[in-house]
């Protein structure tokens, strides 16, 4: 690269680098500083270095582990459900989508709704006295399930998340499914391969990189869930629906333990980073 070209590159990239430093760099540095400091709202401008104390406090807090377990379960279950359903829908509806492309637009509508709005919507829809679902269940069957009661709340938030984000997995799988060369299918048909075997032995293996990507994206998204659960049921009785993100929010703003909250956020970031690195490595290993 010539010196002139190098200067040109630096000039062109400079504004973007400065923008990223301002938008991402400053909060990141601030989070790191506060994460290793004794900081509350009264000492916001004068944090005192406290080493690893915040990290020790976080890891010694049973609520943090309760939240981590909730996030892990929620992320894993919703990712599996969304990808399972998304894959089934993609394969089943592929002919329809090919013939009438507009049907895909209808199927992905739930993704357009903001998660916080989705939470509020379910809060209304599932309310025992104001919501249509419990109303008709009670009117028709004399049955009034408490969707948001302690026994069902986890299942309810899992179903709500699955209904909203299955279209995302569906879209990824549909694209992957439709990009499988048609001549492979034709060759298999000539050899007398049955449809089920065609799917298991040819189509699914070719879609596996997409399956892994979808699983990881959905897991990370589920693991860091905040808005729809927070607007639907909050932290839950006894903290039963407290995800890691809700834990961080409540520790930061409700309890004013800024250092501890940011230490938890750093741990969350580190976990996500490790998981993504593993995912990337796995994907590279599986690349044809």
């Amino acid at each position: 690269m010539t010196p002139g070209r190098s200067v040109e590159n630096a000039l062109l990239a400079g504004p973007l680098v400065l923008f990223l430093l301002a938008v991402l760099g400053f909060p990141t540095v601030l989070s790191l500083v506060y994460g290793f400091s004794e900081t509350g709202f009264q000492t916001l401008t004068a944090p005192e270095f406290s080493g690893l104390k915040n990290f020790r406090d976080v890891t010694a807090d049973p609520t943090f582990w309760q939240a981590a377990w909730f996030s892990l379960r929620f992320g894993a279950i919703t990712a599996l459900l969304q990808c399972g359903l998304g894959l089934a829908l993609a394969v089943y509806l592929a002919p329809l989508a090919r013939a009438h492309g507009w049907t895909v637009a209808i199927l992905i509508i739930p993704m357009i709704v903001a998660p916080a709005m989705m939470g509020l919507m379910y809060r209304l829809v599932l309310h025992e006295f104001a919501g249509p679902v419990p109303h008709y269940l009670y009117s028709w069957f004399g049955w009034s399930p408490s969707f948001l009661g302690p026994a069902n709340v986890f299942k309810t938030v899992v179903v709500a998340e699955t209904l909203q984000w299955t279209p995302f997995a569906f879209l990824l799988f549909l694209t992957a499914y439709q990009s499988i060369p048609q001549d492979l299918r034709e060759a298999a048909a000539v050899d007398g391969t049955r449809p089920w075997r065609l799917f298991w032995k040819i189509e699914l293996p070719l879609m596996m990189p997409t399956v892994f990507v979808a699983l990881f994206i959905r897991f990370i998204d589920g693991f860091r869930v905040f808005d729809n659960i927070y607007t639907l049921v909050g932290a839950g009785p006894g903290g039963s629906t407290t995800s890691i993100s809700i834990y961080i929010y409540e520790t930061f703003l409700r309890r004013g333990e800024i250092g501890k909250a940011l230490a938890a956020a750093i741990l969350l970031f580190a976990t996500a980073f490790v998981l993504l690195s593993v995912a990337q490595r796995l994907l590279r290993g599986r690349a044809p």
Binding site: E128, F129, S146, L148, G149, G234
Partner: peptide, 21 residues
């Protein structure tokens, strides 16, 4: 009290009373 009331705040509790139940 309704089983769901562990998720109720002001508005939901009022809706329950307002329903006449």
């Amino acid at each position: 009290t309704p089983p769901d009331s562990t998720s109720y705040e002001y508005a939901e509790a009022n809706a329950a009373y307002a329903s006449g139940q």
